[in-house]
């Protein structure tokens, strides 16, 4: 069996199946929905950070763009939700194309510029002068599309898509080329990799993943404010989860979300008064003691992790 088939059969399929079945056994469906959402976003971060080394600190910009792309089609064109999902992807893609020049920046400069771009987009969308188009600061409220079951199913499909992208990157020449660029862009260019183009592709793919996640979120909640869908918590959570598991693998982000978001909710349910404190300390400990993620514990023993 080829490697990618193994990865699909033993990682992606069980994960999707589990989250398809879980709602029947556990009825806090929103918790499950958020798990699916963060699995998608963490994998999206993995695509750009794990495979190119660019840390998208304003990743939520695409999520928000997707949420608004979805909502605007519903509000103004009364599009069916499925078609509006296309709007979510297009909106995120358009923003990503606009921001492609940021890839010229290195290291922290890229991250900060990306964060600034996400904040700028939020300020733009929530400006009262655009009330007629985006509802400005007064928030989006969609009637007639409320259907959490269908939105959950769509979220599963989007997550499956994000996972398949990771499988593809892990097993394709393109993914290999990206990693080569990450390790040493000069040698990669000499070896015939079109460095800027490879990075741009990863960037656009990762943006579309977040955009679709944003669209599905908008569909699920139907009422939201700009602050909700541009909350920097989404970027930070997605990055921290991906990092905790270990990037540039398929499994890392999945493990990261399942464990860390699980712990997050456990703290939230059990000791809410010290929520922020415990979580902040946990993040610090993670960076100081496990900078390569959980996966590195296994890798150190010479085991190859998909």
């Amino acid at each position: 069996m080829p490697r990618y088939a193994k990865h699909i059969l033993f990682i992606v399929a069980p994960l999707v199946a589990a989250f398809a079945i879980l709602p029947f056994a556990y009825n806090n469906q929103l918790l499950l929905f958020n798990f699916v959402l963060f699995l998608t976003l963490a994998q999206g971060v993995n695509v750009i950070y794990g495979f190119t080394g660019y840390l998208p600190f304003g990743y939520v910009g695409f999520f928000g763009a997707g949420a608004y792309g979805f909502s605007l089609l519903i509000l103004h064109l009364h599009a069916p939700p499925l078609a509006a999902m296309g709007g979510a992807a297009v909106a995120a893609l358009a923003i990503a194309l606009l921001l492609t020049p940021l890839l010229r920046l290195s290291g922290a400069y890229f991250s900060i510029a990306n964060l600034a771009a996400a904040l700028a987009l939020m300020q733009f969308i929530s400006n009262p002068n655009l009330e007629a188009i985006t509802r400005g600061p007064y928030g989006v409220s969609m009637t007639g599309v409320f259907n959490p079951r269908l939105a959950y199913t769509m979220a599963l499909i989007v997550m499956a898509g994000a996972m398949l992208v990771a499988v593809w990157l892990r097993n394709s020449r393109f993914g290999l080329a990206l990693q080569a660029v990450r390790e040493d862009p000069v040698s990669a260019a000499q070896a015939g990799v079109d460095v800027p183009r490879a990075r741009a592709y990863a960037w656009l793919i990762s943006a579309v993943i977040a955009g679709l996640a944003g669209g599905v979120f908008a569909w699920y909640v139907t009422v939201f404010y700009p602050e909700n869908v541009f909350s920097s918590d989404y970027s930070i959570f997605a990055v921290v989860f991906a990092l905790f598991g270990g990037v540039s693998t398929i499994l890392g982000p999945i493990v990261g979300v399942l464990i860390l978001y699980g712990v997050y909710n456990f703290i939230g349910f059990s000791t809410p008064q010290y929520f922020q404190l415990i979580y902040g300390a946990l993040i610090m400990a993670l960076v100081l003691f496990l900078p390569q993620g959980l996966i590195s514990l296994v890798k150190r023993r010479g085991i190859d992790v998909p």
């Binding site: 806090n28 929103l30 918790l31 958020n34 909350s231 918590d233 959570f237 349910f269």
Partner: peptide
Amino acid sequence: DDQSNTATAQTLYNQ
């Protein structure tokens, strides 16, 4: 405690 975070608030409401 939702910490002013809407995603967390959602989960908690549902919880």
